[in-house]
Design a protein around this nucleic acid. Sequence first.
DNA 1: GCGTTCTATGTATGGCATACGCTGTTCTGC
DNA 2: GCAGAACAGCGTATGCCATACATAGAACGC
Lengths: 252, 252
Amino acid sequence: MSDADVELPESIELAWGLRERPGKGPRRSLTMRQVVAAGIRVAETDGLAAVSMSRVAGELGVATMSLYRYVPAKSDLLDLMADTAYGDPPAPRGPHEGWRPALARWALANVAAIHRHPWIRQVPIGGPPLGPNQVRWMEQGLAALRGTGLRGIERLSTIMLVSGYARNWATLTVDLDEAAAREQLDPDDAGARYWHQLARLTRHGAYPAIRELLVEGTEGSEDEVFDTEWEFGLERILDGIEVLIRGRTAPD
Amino acid sequence: MSDADVELPESIELAWGLRERPGKGPRRSLTMRQVVAAGIRVAETDGLAAVSMSRVAGELGVATMSLYRYVPAKSDLLDLMADTAYGDPPAPRGPHEGWRPALARWALANVAAIHRHPWIRQVPIGGPPLGPNQVRWMEQGLAALRGTGLRGIERLSTIMLVSGYARNWATLTVDLDEAAAREQLDPDDAGARYWHQLARLTRHGAYPAIRELLVEGTEGSEDEVFDTEWEFGLERILDGIEVLIRGRTAPD
DNA sequence: GCGTTCTATGTATGGCATACGCTGTTCTGC
DNA sequence: GCAGAACAGCGTATGCCATACATAGAACGC
């Protein structure tokens, strides 16, 4: 089966620049990149909820329906925005860099991308990665695991595990920060309030494990806790991968 | 600081039944539970996108605006729906059950809940868990880790790591299945098509790690691959936790 | 029996994505 | 140099949506 006749979704062809310009009609007054950039500008300023076709069109000084000459539907615009916002993947694994630091760098870059463009987390995932930047991130993630003895599908599962963790963690922290900001609260105070709320709700009833946790306390500022929690989860995952790799390298 | 005067969000008080009935005016014709149940019915039948206030009201034979006597806003309705749909947490860790099988059961129950009510994954997370079922799930997750030597915050981070993985994985599989169904494709074919699409896009350009993966192939039916991938990620995480616990139990 | 307080609901506001069709521009083929 | 096809931009219309606000009437305390 030849690869040439594999059909690609319209928005993917758009993103990779595989659509030839028609040539016939009047000159286009915009480019797809401009439309995507305008969408990003709106999301950056007022959040993803503010990204409506009419708002983006307004940003470009153009009628709402004109955008549909550049993008098949709003969901495609969002996909293109997300792919663009992820930007370049981190530097590839260096010649003397182990898989573990390389993968840790890749994971942190995932978090940084979402923290840089918090609206990304709200873009609905529309299938496996096919956008140009998504594919380049995938390439760098897989590259970090070359020569580890992991099978292909295991390398794939590994980077999905790591990027999923990064996405979850970034989403969680951004959600909490935004919720605190919405109530004009310090993130630290919001965290403390949560523990008080949980304590009140579990005062009556059988929640021994939660009460044990509350008694023990969760000292430290939110910032410290957040960094520590990120490291904690990442180290657990990397340790787990290392167990497998060691088992592979030194055959039983 | 006393717990008694901690303010709780209105929807949380609603969910825990902490709101006293007013008593004065006309009898209410519905209960909050009925409203939530109607919302779930709609989501179950036609997906979360079909859950509009008017649709839910119609389901109950009531005017749209009547719902706002039972629920402060749509987002609260969605939160309540999700908490209800999660239902009972899995059985608590048995007296002779190790932390690892208990946590694995808990993780799988998370996946099962989302597979049972796929729309749950689309309900925006509105902060840390405070709903009655969410708190009970939290309790069981933490309980699985009692006596492991992990610190309180570590137990918390651990269950967040595991539930995050479960949620990611369940979301991914449901998304892929729904995308395939939308195009009336067999999930296996949709998977195969993805690899062909990726192969075509990476034909030109520097994607050595991806091409290595493609050459090696990803044999096996989607079902097999999915189950294997779930196990793979979970075992990595549990292995990583085990490394830490062993280090704690046997002091250096 | 009366005032208060609550329920249910009708209406209105200000959004939203996008289907469709019209007008006028630009290029191709002759 | 010109006819006609193909296309860009956009006005209009449809059918949604959440929810603010005001009103009418029901149930209760007194």
